[in-house]
Write a protein that binds this DNA or RNA. Structure first.
Lengths: 137, 137
DNA sequence: TTATTAGTCTATTAAAATGGTAGGGAATAT
DNA sequence: ATATTCCCTACCATTTTAATAGACTAATAA
């Protein structure tokens, strides 16, 4: 399951996408609109900024904004950033690979199946963007 | 990511499948062969027994054994049992559904995408069995 | 220049989950 | 009867998660 952190990130990002025309949006506005603890949200937005997904502006008229258009922000990237690996086992993770302890990959059948799961998952997440998860009106 | 608990469960189950002919297998044997803490493994096997995947026998000559042939033990069931939901969001979980707080499912785009991820994942996990993850020799 | 606004940063905390341990108790075979 | 082996309950340490606090810095407007 995705952590609250990641879920909140999606909330915030879709809110920003839906309000792109308004220029920078206040953390507090997102916090109120999407019912997310203000301080927790601060951390999340900062993280998204540091990883190059968001831009920010301080002072009056400031706030956060998307740097790229929503269709260029992939879902897999967001999840990896805040939640870590998407794969179900470290030994089949593309971005967070770690050898399994006590397990010989060469003869491990789980490895094969979990790679397949990963590929199926990524087929969706890498080809869908923020644009695909905006609210439907 | 799957928890150690689930990973150990797969270790134990494949070991049991590979040694079905030997009759009941000692916890201690599995523990040694697959390098899993004995006491932790006890808990896991007990859980698998209670959910009807394993049988056991006490006393001399006792141990654990598979109740059904490996090809009838689905991977999704094992994961759900020890790790809970397979879906990435509570609101798209088939077996552990919960409404998301602060989110209107009807207009939520994430819901749609995450349902697709779930379906893709289950397509693999529900159609693969223990037999498919045995060691390849 | 000063007050205000708004993001930045570091640290802390409470609660839950994870991974593992301890030690009897109960059933069974010899 | 006794050795063997699983059963059961409780406990513990560590890590992760979710959230909070508060001081600091940068930008803007009066």
């Amino acid at each position: 399951m995705l952590s609250k952190k990641t879920q909140y990130a999606f909330h915030a990002l879709t809110y920003l996408a839906e309000n792109q025309d308004k220029g920078p949006v206040l953390i507090s506005e997102i916090s109120e609109e999407r019912k997310i603890s203000l301080k927790f949200l601060e951390n999340i937005l900062l993280e998204l900024k540091k990883s190059g997904i968001l831009g920010s502006k301080k002072g009056k008229g400031g706030g956060y904004y998307l740097i790229k258009p929503p269709e260029e922000i992939g879902l897999a990237k967001i999840i990896r950033l805040l939640d870590g690996p998407i794969a179900l086992l470290p030994c089949v993770s593309l971005n967070y690979y770690e050898r399994c302890e006590n397990c010989q990959e060469e003869i491990c059948g789980l490895n094969v199946v979990m790679s397949e799961v990963r590929d199926n998952t990524l087929k969706v997440l890498e080809n869908k963007s923020l644009k695909d998860v905006l609210r439907k009106h």
